[in-house]
């Protein structure tokens, strides 16, 4: 299985308000193969979201190597890294992060705008249909339930057919029933599209559903 994600000796330090340095991430090695699905767990404040931001190229590590689909995005210029992220990484957030002024379809098209995927609006519509929102294309986020909003976010993350999908507590804002439905949907689509999925969660039920569970403290 070829590696889609590989991290080696990655560390990230932040300067606290009192001037002290706080090492948030320090991991030796972590890899995920193509189409693999893993859940990343850790205590609150252990750096799970920071790790996702490092993988996505939103943050840069102090040292170490991050390879995504054969490319080290940290070596790219910021603009090239942005383009790389749009094309190679789908990001699903706990709080959905949909743009309120845009319809469901427009939110998905926004994801497509910065990426390089073909298919235009047809692919966006198809994806929304596949997450069960074919009848809600022109609805704005406020008119959608939280479960529906997260489905839009999933469609947006996948619109550029990225090899890697990062999901930061995607069920964290949902009730149990919606949480299960959204998780199943995300996993099913990633499986069908052979997208590698790295999902951060606190939820034991979610952890149980994954074969590969990675504890952040074990990577140190």
């Amino acid at each position: 299985m070829s590696e889609v994600l590989s991290l080696r000796n990655v560390s990230k330090t932040f300067r606290e308000a009192d001037g002290n340095l706080l090492e948030v991430i320090s991991l030796r090695q972590f890899e995920l193969g193509a189409g693999e699905q893993a859940v990343l767990v850790g205590e609150s404040g252990s750096g799970k979201s920071t790790l996702l931001n490092l993988i996505a190229g939103i943050l840069l590590p102090d040292k170490g190597e991050i390879m995504v689909n054969g490319t080290n995005p940290t070596k790219l210029s910021e603009a090239a890294r942005d383009r790389f992220r749009a094309a190679n990484i789908g990001y699903v957030f706990q709080s959905f992060n949909l743009l309120q002024g845009f319809t469901a379809l427009e939110n998905v098209l926004l994801g497509q705008m910065f990426g390089s995927a073909n298919g235009g609006a047809d692919r966006a519509v198809q994806l929304l249909k596949s997450v069960g929102l074919g009848h809600r294309l022109q609805h704005k986020p406020r008119a959608l339930s939280v479960g529906e909003q997260q489905r839009v976010a999933i469609a947006r993350a996948l619109v550029n057919a990225p090899p890697l999908v990062l999901a930061d507590e995607p069920t964290g804002s949902l009730d149990a029933r919606n949480g299960v439905a959204v998780l199943d949907l995300l996993r099913r689509i990633c499986t069908e599209g052979k997208h590698t999925l790295l999902l951060v969660t606190h939820d034991p039920q979610v952890m149980k559903s994954f074969e590969k569970v990675v504890r952040l403290e074990d990577l140190r």
Binding site: A56, D82, L110, F114
Partner: peptide, 16 residues
């Protein structure tokens, strides 16, 4: 700022 951060996370460049 949140909207801008979302756009950046989706791949929008600073110049955009």
């Amino acid at each position: 700022r949140r909207e801008i951060a979302i756009l950046r996370a989706l791949g929008a460049r600073r110049a955009t």
